[in-house]
Amino acid sequence: MSDALLSVRNLTTAFATESGRTIAVDDVSFDVRAGEAVGLIGESGSGKSVAALSILGLLPTPPARVLAGSAVFEGRDLLQMPAKELRRIRGKRIGMIFQEPMTSLNPVFPIGEQIAESLRLHERIGNEAARKRAIALLDRVGIPSASRRLDDYPHQLSGGMRQRVMIAIALACDPKLLIADEPTTALDVTVQAQLLDLLNDLRRETGMAMLLITHNMGVIAEFADRVVVMYSGRVAEEAPIETLFDAPRHPYTQGLLGATPTLAQTEARLRTIPGSLPDPAAPPPGCRFAPRCSFADAECSAARPAEISLAVGHRAACRRTDATKNWQAA
């Protein structure tokens, strides 16, 4: 694991709330290797976005606080880094794109200006050079007649175009890692597919690594080399993409895949996972998935299950991996 570009270990992030402290990310570890695409998947509230924001120090403190863990990027722990140095990494070494393209651009400046701004934040660059780079970036993210679009304002662009601009901004300084937080969730399906293709192309071209946060199994399948499944603030399972879809071992992952519609499906209704995500302020003891799990026994609710290594790059936090072996894809 020493070849990791980003190595997150035992990350624990809490929020101070009126009813006390809520642990949103609980002892989460994963790696992103150079050039690799890692999917971080989970329901809303599973802690996937909080984990990513913790790594970049983007959570408001208070109420949020990183209680423990490390996030070593290119040999340095981001969590221990002074704010000023972390700022130099954000946007330069690690780019980030967000879920809402409609509101992620400043309405009062033209898009070219906003791309140039992200360049100026990290480099000494003249106006003319910045403009040229902005045109090249717009061109690269597939915006037609980029030089004419440069002086457009965000409201003149569609959602898909705006997300392309956001990608251009994130890529401006050639980051080694791109964190994409639900980049396609707010867009319609055809535009989603175009953007995923674009991100894939860009990754191949530049060799940057990508951490994709999503709740969409389909997006993960098209995109990731490796997947980390999160449930209620913890890692449930981590596996290479083929293993995850062919032989998932955590009952939660199995439930997620069972709930995903397929073309070969014969049943009229989708299968669901009974129950709902536990209240993060009062999580169940032991395995957090136990109350919803058909394999669970009394011991599952007694203690937190250890992560079991099942194969190279495949681990699951489940006591009953023997019982979950015979899973059949729908």
């Binding site: 970049l56 946007g91 967000f98 509101t103 400043n106 701004e117």
Partner: peptide, 12 residues
């Protein structure tokens, strides 16, 4: 607003 968060993520 989102663009403020986005700008912080870009290193501002």
């Amino acid at each position: 607003l989102d663009y403020v968060h986005a700008s912080r993520a870009a290193g501002a």
